[in-house]
Design a protein around this nucleic acid. Structure first.
Length: 258
DNA sequence: AACCCCTACAACCGCGGTGGT
DNA sequence: AACCACCGCGGTTGTAGGGGT
């Protein structure tokens, strides 16, 4: 397959984003959406590669991103989902509204991994799509690039799945500004009931998590019947069920011994 | 007060998948 | 059918900041 030349072009900026760049990117996406990431930086006048723009938007600038500490419930959910899905961070993120795969990945590696008992209990990596590789990266970031990335409005909390989200913002909210966009985000009625408004402190109750965890894994291939999805995934006894599912899907050799 | 170590997080890299031509 | 371009994902790294000594 063709490899995207991406950032290899010289002259493109790397490293931390400046507040100005953030502004430009957000404004451009709000106005035109992000139909084509590759073309976006050029159109927006950013000296970044499309990939970098996409990452910045998805992991940081998207209005529906909920920042701040993970609640205990969220952490538990991550652990549980990781048990089921392995390192499929995007799949996990899809079930944790307002959290990005990158963020979840970070949290996992920084504390959750330890919390559940030592590094890498088992081989979830394989379940997560199984990327191999990694030759060490020698030369990396140019220099500190002082500018600590600005943190735009961080109170946003809405839910909507990743893909639907960004485009709806881009297309529906002219120059509304990201914070107001977040307040009027389209959310499903079910989820809306679990989230307070964007300006209020994010509050999660038990029902939210049971609902979240029982949402079907739509769009994510875990090799199961949609109807079976997360019927009641709550404890180790369900592991047997999932083991069976994965077994049938032929992925079992990579699963940890539970 | 200075130094060192650790943690958290933003960002980059490279690959696989997919859709278009 | 083959090729190409792009998107999205997961792994990894660099750096800033905080805490401890």
């Amino acid at each position: 397959m063709g490899r995207a030349p991406c950032c290899e072009k010289m002259g493109l900026k790397k490293g931390p984003w400046t507040p100005e760049e953030d502004k430009v990117l957000v404004a451009h996406i709000q106005r035109h959406g992000h139909g084509n990431w590759r073309a976006l930086p050029k159109q927006a006048g950013l000296l970044r590669c499309g990939k970098s723009c996409r990452l910045r938007w998805i992991n940081y600038l998207r209005p529906d991103i909920k920042r701040g500490n993970f609640s205990r419930e969220e952490e538990d959910a991550i652990i549980q989902l990781h048990e089921l899905l392995g390192n499929r961070w995007s799949a996990i993120a899809a079930r944790l509204p307002g959290r990005t795969d990158n963020e979840i990945k970070n949290v996992w590696h920084t504390h959750l991994k330890k919390r559940r008992g030592g590094p890498e209990r088992g081989r979830h990596d394989a379940a997560g799509g199984g990327k191999k590789h990694k030759k060490p990266r020698s030369e990396k970031k140019p220099a500190a690039a002082a500018a600590a990335p600005a943190s735009p409005e961080r109170s946003a909390s809405s839910s909507v799945t990743e893909s639907s989200m960004a485009s709806s913002v881009a297309e529906e909210h002219g120059n509304a500004g990201i914070s107001s966009a977040s307040a009027s985000m389209s959310v499903s009625a079910k989820e809306e009931s679990s989230f307070t408004s964007a300006s209020e402190e994010f509050q999660i109750d038990e029902s939210f998590w049971s609902e979240t965890l029982s949402m079907p894994l739509d769009g994510y291939d875990v090799s199961m019947e949609p109807g079976d999805a997360f019927a009641a995934p709550s404890s180790a006894e369900d592991m047997d069920y999932w083991l069976k599912v994965f077994m049938e899907a032929g992925e079992v050799e990579d699963l940890p011994q539970i």
